[in-house]
Amino acid sequence: MKALLRSRPLLTTLVVLVVWIVAGFASPGFGSWPHLRYMLELASVIGLVGAGQTVVVIAGGIDLSVAAIVTLSTIALPLLSWSFDTTGAIAVLGVLALSTLVGLVNGIGIAWLRVHPMIMTLAMATFLQGLLILMAGGSAVTLDNPIVAWLGSARPFGFSACIMLWIVMSGLVLVLLHATPLGARFFALGANPLAARLSGVNIRATTLCAYGISGLMCGLAGLLALGMNGQGYVGIGDPYLLASIAAVVLGGTSILGGRGTYGGTLPGAVLLVTITALITVVNASPGLRDVLFGTLVLGLLLLSGREAKRR
């Protein structure tokens, strides 16, 4: 019982359920299936970005370029569309390859050029944002890709396609982290890079993999965001930077690296969307919304997310 109570993924899940139940009674319609489903759809984007962020944080790094990569993938999709590509599959693969490539460049900067992860990914974010403004300017990009449109709006058997994609990806990430040697290397790298290196873990390749995975997940999340929105624009990815890191930490993954699980990031992402929904319910103005969101995230982290003392 005590061990269960100390399990952060479980605790976060319980918090989500309690909030849902209380809010469901307080506000009619909050607890309805369409509304819950809508929240899960929104959470799937945070969840995917959070998946990459979880891997990077466990491996002892941090990825501050996630928002920019999400935006990049929404803006780049129409640029990679050709007339012969009627299904849009090539464009989708192209976007995923591009976002993975950005992640790999982050990894190269960090592992080979030894730039600190914060500096490297922040510089990458700034670079990409400038590039996107040059490419798209202030104009929005309209979605014309059938696959992405389906992902964003289809609900086979009443269950959203994007939630299903999230579930599948979650399973893959959980297996990757906890049931493959590569996953074990992420944990070893995050816990003690020196000991990991001397034990034969290829630090550079492992770092490269972590940031590559993060890039790929951001690409996927960007496609989902575009599919749901119908439009892509500079700034579409912005909310996902704080959200992904907050979801990771709320889920009990150590921001210092080496410990954690994606199993905690999942309820973390749902919790963040729930908070946003509650803020919307109280009808706050746009500026106040961000103030409230930031305050609540900070409050939650103070309650549950502080690091236990480590020796």
Binding site: A188, A191, A196
Partner: peptide, 23 residues
Amino acid sequence: GLLLTHSIRFNMLLPDFGRAVSL
């Protein structure tokens, strides 16, 4: 030499993780 906060088992397996097929 060791990942202090990780389990004895994980530490014993570490060199193998380093060499095994990634996926």
